[in-house]
Design a binder for these strands. Structure first.
Lengths: 194, 194
DNA sequence: TTAAAATGTTAAACTAAGTTAACATAATTT
DNA sequence: AAATTATGTTAACTTAGTTTAACATTTTAA
């Protein structure tokens, strides 16, 4: 069970004792998934909140016309889950699919309260990472409101170069809220104008 | 100091003892602002996270061209702050301005850690409300990615009728990410088509 | 009560982005 | 190596949403 990256990550926020670490390790699940598999499909109840050890996921909403709208990608050291479904144990709005073979540390819903009770520091930890996620989400909304598609692409490319290299371009387009054809046009514009 | 609405709100999530309540009351600030005043201006460091007792605020980003992009409105029983600035004590990206005379309960940055230490239940409480805020933010991103302006307006009107009645239409347009002229067109379309 | 300021409407001309479809290239599978 | 499948490009055409500007209405201030 490769759990070191998670412990290292948690340690950036709070310090766990050996006992606390052992308790946590006993409650979480290490698992590998293959490229193409799903962690959650919309309509399911999401039973896990997951930390990515290695690999890559996309979280997306599929609308009535069958169009995919990508909410986020997760790679090493990021978290993934349908938060709404996980917290409220209601049907998920989103799908989470693996874009590569992926290793996860999974926090089952039915142990998370137990973990908070035994290790209040982790309640603090999760408060802090959710604050960060919320801040990032708010900033994304502003970018979508105030920037053109071209500027949003340039921002994405500069901010997440490791992600852009790992995923097909049509998924970047979906994440940016534009069509693949239009992203193609933007990229050729950027090439000629500089 | 009108703090009852806050205590009632907190009580929906966790139960505070009398001592805990007194401690909390001693740490927060009750204050009134007038319509037009600012709680935060972009570039400031946001010193307070606030619960709205009465009144209304808008949170917006002003871009280089001087265009306002409204992130959110807050009314009674909602929270408002520039979370990024408050958490990290860095310059704010957003402005928060009062659209009506407004009463707030303010949590100063320099007491919040003290509050968490004395009342761990409030760390739990804030984890839970931030989870909710994050979920709402994610859902807004999806709506912006997957719905037309007309559908976003109809959703807003149905979801927040109390807000639509209190604020000028051009601010609704800004929140939806469209111009006031286009919102006007959408509304006249909706009137004729039904 | 009138003037001024703020908000809302309409319409024509324009632009950013979407649609369709044909073709090109790269990656997998056989 | 050939054949499929997945991904990416280009271009003509359409559409959703913006810009500009003139005017209408409502609210606030004098």
């Amino acid at each position: 069970m490769k759990i070191e990256p998670l412990l290292k990550y948690i340690n950036k926020y709070v310090s766990l004792t050996h006992e606390e670490t052992d308790f946590l390790v006993s409650k979480v699940i290490y698992r590998k998934y293959l490229k193409g598999q799903y962690l959650v499909q919309q309509g399911d109840v999401c039973k896990f909140s997951c930390f990515v050890i290695s690999g890559c996921t996309k979280t997306f909403y599929m609308d009535e016309e069958g169009q995919e709208h990508i909410m986020m990608f997760s790679i090493e050291d990021w978290w993934t889950s349908d938060m709404s479904s996980y917290i409220n144990q209601t049907p998920a709005d989103f799908n989470i699919q693996f874009l590569e073979n992926t290793e996860l540390i999974m926090f089952p819903y039915d142990v998370i309260e137990d973990v908070y009770q035994h290790i209040p520091k982790l309640e603090r930890f999760f408060r802090q990472i959710i604050e960060k996620a919320f801040i990032a989400s708010q900033k994304r909304i502003v970018r979508n409101l105030s920037m053109t598609a071209k500027d949003r692409y340039v921002y994405f490319r500069d901010q997440y170069p490791q992600i852009e290299q790992r995923i097909p371009q049509y998924m970047v387009a979906s994440y940016l809220g534009i069509t693949k054809e239009f992203l193609s046009k933007i990229k050729s514009q950027l090439l000629t104008e500089d």
